[in-house]
């Protein structure tokens, strides 16, 4: 595959930055920022996992917040088995251990005395999400499978959100909203004429813009996944794993 990445990503992914920062005191601030960014993006799989483990939604919210407090304020990586290599795998293992060790006493103390550092409504409002899965899958998927499925959906949603923001930043939000539904459509399924009429541009321009959006979207998907692996060579394998997770939700 011949794909040109922006130069910085050959050197550093967010996850590799976090792992490097855990080994030394240098760039600690960047390490913390990278980890915080990853947590802000991927809190939903953790929340879904905790819910699927049988906790009420309210308890799951508290536990999810407590978990990320632990991740962000303690030397989490020093205690974790980093040989797992991928942020997703390590985060899942960590939340499993966290739930195993959490006690009612600890949770009451945290709830009573610590200022909520993550505004739940603020997180949800900033990046809304809508995911639909079959009721059968929801009832039968193991918590770990639901975690991966939610992770996969988050990758997709994040890439779409970034694409939308890039279009909006350039004053092309209407173009995005009109063409985004056709990102994965086959050529035969796309009525270029009707889209052109809707946008007030030529058919050929619709084709060019749709191709442009697809190219950029594909890059953004890979970029999202790249940030969660230590080695960019693992991206394809991670995408295939996440595709399998989504297939399990059918």
């Amino acid at each position: 595959m011949n794909m040109e990445l922006e130069p910085r990503l050959f050197a550093t992914t967010r996850w590799s930055l976090v792992l490097c920062g855990a080994n030394s005191d240098s760039d600690e601030q960047k390490c913390r920022e990278a980890l915080a960014e990853l947590c802000r993006t991927y809190w939903r799989p953790v929340f879904s996992y905790v819910c699927r483990r049988g906790y009420s939604a309210e308890d799951a919210q508290d536990l999810t917040q407590d978990f990320f407090v632990m991740v962000l304020e303690s030397h989490w990586l020093l205690k974790a088995d980093r040989s797992r290599g991928r942020f997703r795998s390590l985060l899942l293992k960590s939340v499993q251990n966290f739930l195993h060790n959490v006690s009612d006493k600890n949770r009451r103390l945290k709830r009573g005395g610590v200022v909520e550092f993550i505004s739940w409504d603020a997180w949800m409002a900033e990046a809304p999400s809508q995911l639909s899965i079959s009721s059968q899958a929801l009832g039968t998927l193991a918590p770990e499978c639901l975690f991966d499925l939610r992770w996969a959906a988050t990758v997709v949603e994040q890439a779409l959100r970034r694409l939308r923001e890039e279009c909006e930043a350039k004053g092309r939000l209407r173009l995005f909203e009109t063409l985004s539904s056709y990102l994965v459509a086959e050529r035969g399924e796309t009525s270029y004429a009707s889209l052109a009429a809707s946008l007030g541009i030529e058919d050929t321009m619709v084709k060019k813009q749709l191709h442009n959006l697809r190219q950029r979207y594909r890059w953004l998907v890979r970029d999202e996944v790249t940030h969660t692996v230590e080695n960019p060579a693992d991206v394809d394998d991670e995408i295939r794993h996440l595709c399998a997770a989504l297939a399990a939700g059918t």
Binding site: S132, L149, A153, S181, V184, V221, R222, D236
Partner: peptide
């Protein structure tokens, strides 16, 4: 054949698989 959807009913699996199809220039 997947049923998992995101956003306005888009197929999540097809969208994710696009990440394996990336080719050519894609810089911002």
């Amino acid at each position: 054949g997947a049923t998992t959807r995101v956003g306005e009913g888009l197929c999540a699996t097809c969208l994710l698989r696009e990440g394996l199809e990336a080719e050519g220039e894609a810089s911002s």
